[in-house]
Simulated scan of single mutants.
Amino acid sequence: MTTRVMLVSPAAGEAQRDVRFDDDGPLGEVGQRRARDAAGTLPAADRTFVSPSVRCRSTAGELGLPARATQELAGCAMGGWRGRTLAEVADAEPRAVSAWLTDPDFVGHGGESLRQLCDRIEGWLTRMALDAGRVLAVVEPDVVRAAAVCALGVPVEAFWRLDVPPLTVTELSGRGGRWNLGLGRAPGRR
Rank of each mutant, 00 (worst) to 15 (best):
A132Q: 09
N180S: 15
Q32V: 07
R95F: 06
R84T: 08
V50K: 05
V97E: 01
C118W: 03
V156L: 06
L86G: 03
G188L: 12
P94S: 05
A45P: 13
Q32A: 08
G61T: 08
E122Q: 08
S51F: 10
L73S: 00
P94I: 00
V97M: 10
T85C: 14
R115P: 01
L136T: 11
C56G: 06
L162S: 09
G83C: 04
E112I: 02
Q71C: 11
E72T: 03
A15V: 06
V154E: 01
G40F: 03
V54K: 06
N180W: 10
D23I: 00
L183Q: 09
P166G: 04
V144A: 13
A67P: 13
G64D: 06
R36Q: 14
E112M: 05
A77E: 10
A45T: 12
L86V: 13
S58Y: 12
A15C: 11
R36A: 14
G177Y: 05
V138Q: 07
T41A: 12
D18W: 12
L63D: 00
R190H: 05
P43I: 08
G79C: 11
G153M: 06
L181E: 04
L167N: 02
D22L: 14
V169M: 03
A151L: 00
D131P: 01
H109N: 00
S113H: 10
M1V: 02
G184M: 13
T59P: 05
V5T: 05
L63M: 07
R95G: 13
A90S: 12
A147M: 03
A11Q: 04
A137P: 03
A74T: 03
R47V: 14
R55K: 02
L183W: 07
A99Q: 14
V164I: 15
D103A: 02
T41L: 15
P43Q: 14
L162M: 15
R68P: 08
Q16A: 09
M1F: 12
E62H: 15
D18C: 01
G25S: 11
L167P: 05
E140T: 13
V154M: 00
V169Y: 07
A158H: 13
L162V: 14
D23N: 10
L130S: 10
P155Y: 01
V97C: 10
D105Y: 03
V5I: 13
D24G: 07
